[in-house]
Design a protein around this nucleic acid. Sequence first.
DNA 1: TAAAATTTGATACTATTTTAACAATTTACC
DNA 2: GGTAAATTGTTAAAATAGTATCAAATTTTA
Lengths: 201, 201
Amino acid sequence: MKSDIPVMSLQRLPVYLNYLKSSGGDGAISSGAIARALGMGEVLVRKDLAYTSAQGKTRVGYQRAELIAALEEYLGCNDRKNAVIIGAGELGNALLAYGGFSNYGIEIAAAFDISPEKIGSEICGKPVYDIRELRKGVEELDAKLAVLCVPSDVAQAVADGLINCGVKKILNFAPVLLRAPDGVTIRNIDVAANLAILMSM
Amino acid sequence: MKSDIPVMSLQRLPVYLNYLKSSGGDGAISSGAIARALGMGEVLVRKDLAYTSAQGKTRVGYQRAELIAALEEYLGCNDRKNAVIIGAGELGNALLAYGGFSNYGIEIAAAFDISPEKIGSEICGKPVYDIRELRKGVEELDAKLAVLCVPSDVAQAVADGLINCGVKKILNFAPVLLRAPDGVTIRNIDVAANLAILMSM
DNA sequence: TAAAATTTGATACTATTTTAACAATTTACC
DNA sequence: GGTAAATTGTTAAAATAGTATCAAATTTTA
């Protein structure tokens, strides 16, 4: 989408946003102050922020409210979009229970599962649908995002199904590398690998 | 620990390991084959693998079994170490239920929580202890890793407690930037931010 | 009013990461 | 046995990411 920004910079934007929202205060804040608080270089902060519509004022800094608005606009927090959770296991449940997605304009609209006991139920107020009705659900909800919380051995098949239904962006928690055609973006979170990496650092 | 390897390379090692373990087959595999399967450059694969003790043979490639062993050794999969989950909420439960940590030699030994209903119970066979007895638990278990699954507003305080108990490596799921002294490594996973980033890609 | 201090944004520079090129070596094949 | 093909590991180049420098601008202070 915003293909001109380096991924590294894009990944830092939510960090700035979190910091600004949590640190509170009003008025202006300088790139130097942000950099110090986050333990990074101030030029890097300015460069990252320059990708958004944020504009700093010489000798003053950035207006906090404007900066937050610029970051939220860049990250699409104002455009409401639906996401679906695939796999209503423990992890799926945790994500259905988590309220933090709305900060980014993301609404977890429903979950899909294959288990008869779960299909038709509600988890945290979100309906659980039959995965065999994925197409119908995705189309009705106009889901742009899917979060894959299924076991590794079916992850590729389920991903294929999602892609077949027109989903272009998939966040995958299964520790397998998913193949996808051009135009489909897959992002992986491997929690166990993250722990192992942390241990090796 | 292995401070000579670029973080980017370190992060790819589990990807290679996953691929090798899941793709099966025996005999040898070349860096080119790995690169093609994973959609990356073959020289990068060789360089990454060179950080481990793996050695390829000219005109043959790497012995799969040896390569897996080298990756596992580098990632410390053979050294058993205990990890603790802090916060037995939905996410904590999901991690307690997940069996994939053992692939990296990591044993989720216990959870800690503040809720009286949870304290003393077992989740997936793992005990839930009182967070006020964190020190005792961490010392008895010799926990080297902690996974922080607590709400954002208490994350820093809980992290401070962990650090105070001697924990040096923390995987943090709360969307806040934790401050920690030198010698303590913190790694963050912000699921909502990941979805937002994915949406902006 | 003028000077000093501070902060942005741009440019230049440095470091890191990735890719390309290639010599060395080993296997397969004739 | 000799030649061709394939693959590693190394060295060089390119691309990317991050840092330092600095002019311009604006606010504060004298």
